[in-house]
Write a protein that binds this DNA or RNA. Structure first.
Length: 429
DNA sequence: TCTGGGGTCCTAGGACCC
DNA sequence: TCTGGGGTCCTAGGACCC
């Protein structure tokens, strides 16, 4: 019988806020929130902001009073900064073991089954101290025989200061494990969200322990196959393994809510051009081609007369050529556009992604392989220039038609680490 | 006035076929 | 005119995640 698995979850606490504080140490201990694009929703809160009663995902405009009353400092999200701090953290974790899964910008799983460790919680506290010292970001660490339990363990570590940032289910006596699970409500379980929590509660299951003891068949009836796997994982048997290497994308989507609603066709065209540019760049950087491309746009769903339009194009030959994509999508826009509508948001998406290497020439189509090659070398030249001289140095004219679509960012922090002009200065007196 | 953006996976149901 | 059962494929929508 193989030795059972040991997974670690390293979860950065209040990650976006912690990143902002790295460059603003004066904000340590003060209430801070980070807002999404258009300063719409709260996407990260410091502990002090949580204590002041600001909910996660809350629309910012509903809480302006609370922000004022508690002197809460707000930042517009600065994803370039967070991405950079995230990369540094990951490269530090990679020195522990190469068996790492980058789960999100602020969470990674490690498989440490093969590491010679006797006291896991103590080991976890060491990792926490190292990340704090080298990166400056506080983390919570959960260690367990399954990923679902590791997520719960990290949550326990975060909630309870006595564990000093690390909690382990490995070698924990059955009675203590039951106690810990009894104290965690089902909402904290990975895979139980807004809809499933009430379903479980009406079944009389309100804690992690309750779900662990639910009949697997019943869990599957209530929640589908994931429910059954959740029970098994809570019992301490791993269903989910480490997902190594970034799996190729299955779909790519770029969308933005506009800075203000617009009826102008050229504003929509500019938005299409920008979304398509970013999405197609991702396609090319992953060496993929899109077999289906499309766009959607809608009016404000909080206003009467809400409408949504979606159009798709089946490509005769898969593409990643920004110019071709923009012109096809702008043409599609013309099929439904009306200057009587107030458009609020627009997105561009790609489906049926295939590797460039698998390109099948469409012998009956009017796109010849030669045309495809020319498009390829044109886009390569654009990418090379932008990579060398900075994003957006060279672009399609349509991108510049209008800027109404651009989201508002009232309180963005400087791009400390990715723009030379915004690097912080330090003076030594 | 003001409510984000980017993903994955599963399932139910329809179309179609034998 | 009426009709069973089962399989496949596709899509839309729903659930979840951060």
């Amino acid at each position: 019988m193989p030795k059972s698995k040991v997974f670690v979850l390293i979860d950065c606490n209040n990650f976006f806020v912690s990143c902002e504080r790295l460059f603003r140490p004066d904000l340590e201990g003060k209430p801070v929130v980070v807002l999404s694009s258009n300063d719409g929703c709260v996407v990260a809160r410091s502990n002090e902001a949580k204590a002041a009663g600001v909910p996660m995902g809350a629309p910012a405009f509903k809480h302006r009073e609370t922000f004022k009353k508690h002197n809460i400092v707000t930042f517009s999200a600065n994803f370039e900064l967070y991405g950079d701090i995230s990369k540094r953290t990951i490269s530090l974790l990679t020195t522990i073991t190469p068996r790492i899964e980058i789960y999100s910008v602020d969470e990674s799983f490690l498989d440490i089954s093969a590491l010679p460790i006797t006291d896991y919680a103590e080991w976890g506290r060491g990792v926490r101290a190292s990340v704090l010292q080298h990166i400056g970001v506080p983390v919570s660490i959960g260690i367990a025989p399954s990923k679902t339990l590791a997520k719960l363990a990290a949550e326990i570590a975060k909630q309870n200061d006595t564990y000093q940032g690390a909690f382990s289910f490995i070698d924990l006596p059955e009675e203590q494990k039951a106690d810990a699970l009894r104290r965690m409500s089902i909402e904290h379980i990975w895979g139980v969200g807004r809809k499933l929590a009430p379903v479980l509660r009406s079944e009389g299951v309100s804690t992690a322990l309750g779900l662990m003891n639910l009949r697997p068949q019943r869990a599957q009836q209530l929640m589908g196959i994931h429910g059954r796997q959740m029970v098994t994982e809570l019992q301490g048997t791993a269903c989910y393994q480490l997902t190594r290497e970034h799996a190729p994308a299955k779909q790519i989507l770029r969308s933005r809510t506009f800075g203000e609603d617009t009826s102008h066709a050229y504003a929509l065209e500019a938005a299409i051009a920008n979304m398509a540019t970013r999405a197609a760049y991702q396609l090319r950087s992953e060496r993929l081609l899109a077999g289906r491309i499309g766009l959607f746009t809608n009016t404000d769903r909080h206003k009467p007369g809400y409408r949504r339009w979606t159009r798709e194009i089946q490509m005769p030959m898969p593409t990643n050529d920004t110019g071709q994509i923009i012109s096809l999508l702008v043409k599609k826009l013309g099929e439904f556009y009306s200057d009587k509508q107030k458009y609020h948001q627009l997105g561009v998406f790609f489906y049926d992604l295939t590797p460039e290497s698998a390109l099948q020439t469409d012998i009956l189509g009017d796109v010849t392989p030669d045309m495809h090659d020319r498009a390829q070398s044109r886009m390569k030249a654009v990418d090379d220039i932008n990579q060398r001289y900075g994003r957006g140095k060279i672009y399609f004219a349509a991108q510049e038609l209008n800027t109404i679509w651009q989201p508002r960012r009232k309180t963005a922090s400087p791009r400390y680490v990715s723009k030379w002009g915004e690097i912080p200065e330090a003076r030594i007196a």
